[in-house]
């Protein structure tokens, strides 16, 4: 039995008085599409930010395959890793942000090749060819020379997905990837995500798109107030949830 792609074990995170994550545990198998739904402030995004270590956890542990993230065990203590070591671990997960966060001073192609060239130090010619292929894959072959400001939100988000893929990550994190988009642009981004899911990429998707969760997720988690309220198959969670809070949330989202 291979180890799961991600194991989250009793993770807690507090911001001042706010308990953002409260003893959260979750296992995500290889190739799974894990959707996380829940009201705003429920800790969904914080969980993603802990997985890619933009926020350090207060307690608990997160493993990517067999590697403990952010810390190293010394006897009965967990010591924080150096910034360089954490950067090295982050290369293995790709993140797609709500606000795209494309590098504004770089063209679409420059955004994609930046990581492979500067972080992975791969040869330029090879990386450039790969960037062309990635842009084609997200349907933007003709936009390689465009700056982010010249692209629509949906196009920017697709470039951001290509940028994350260029690092050849084991895991992709999506933090509300369609929440900042005009309604008519949501479809093009979801289509790329559907395509990715079908290729067997392991994905964790924080989303308000219940339709996407129903169609693409292998498992859905409902979070509220920093806890996992319930989880299961999308059909179960989205159509006949057992918990009242889940039912209220799904009723309101419809």
């Amino acid at each position: 039995m291979p180890s799961p792609m991600v194991s989250i074990i009793n993770v807690s995170k507090r911001f001042g008085a706010l308990q953002a994550l409260d003893e959260v545990s979750l296992e995500i198998p290889r190739g799974a599409v894990q959707c996380i739904i829940g009201p705003s402030g429920s800790g969904k995004s914080t969980l993603l930010r802990c997985i890619n270590q933009l926020e350090p956890t207060d307690s608990g542990a997160i493993f990517l395959e067999d590697e403990l993230l952010g810390f190293e065990r010394k006897g009965d203590k967990l010591l924080e890793l150096s910034e360089g070591q954490i950067a090295g671990q982050r290369m293995k997960t790709g993140t797609v942000f709500q606000r795209f966060n494309l590098f504004q001073h770089m063209t679409a192609r420059e955004n994609i090749v930046e990581g492979p060239l500067r972080v992975l130090n791969r040869p330029r010619g090879e990386v450039m060819d790969e960037a062309v292929a990635l842009l084609e894959r997200v349907g933007l072959a003709d936009k390689s020379g465009a700056y982010p400001a010249e692209l629509s939100g949906g196009q920017q988000q697709r470039v951001a997905i290509a940028r994350a893929l260029a690092m050849r990550p084991k895991l992709l994190l999506f933090d509300e990837p369609t929440s900042a988009l005009d309604p008519e642009l949501v479809g093009e981004v979801l289509a790329v995500m559907h395509d990715l899911a079908s290729t067997g990429m392991t994905m964790i998707v924080v989303t308000h798109e219940l339709a996407f969760a129903r169609d693409a997720a292998s498992n859905v988690v409902f979070m509220d107030r920093g806890r996992i309220v319930e989880q299961g198959l999308p059909t179960t969670i989205l159509t006949e949830p057992t918990e009242q809070r889940t039912r209220d949330f799904i009723g309101a989202e419809r």
Binding site: N52, L54, A87, G88, R90, M91, T93, G94, T95, F97, N101, L102, F103, E114, G115, R118, V119, L120, A160, R163, A164, M167
Partner: peptide, 8 residues
């Protein structure tokens, strides 16, 4: 954050 996310 985006730069960190690609391991910079």
């Amino acid at each position: 954050e985006a730069a960190k996310s690609i391991g910079m």
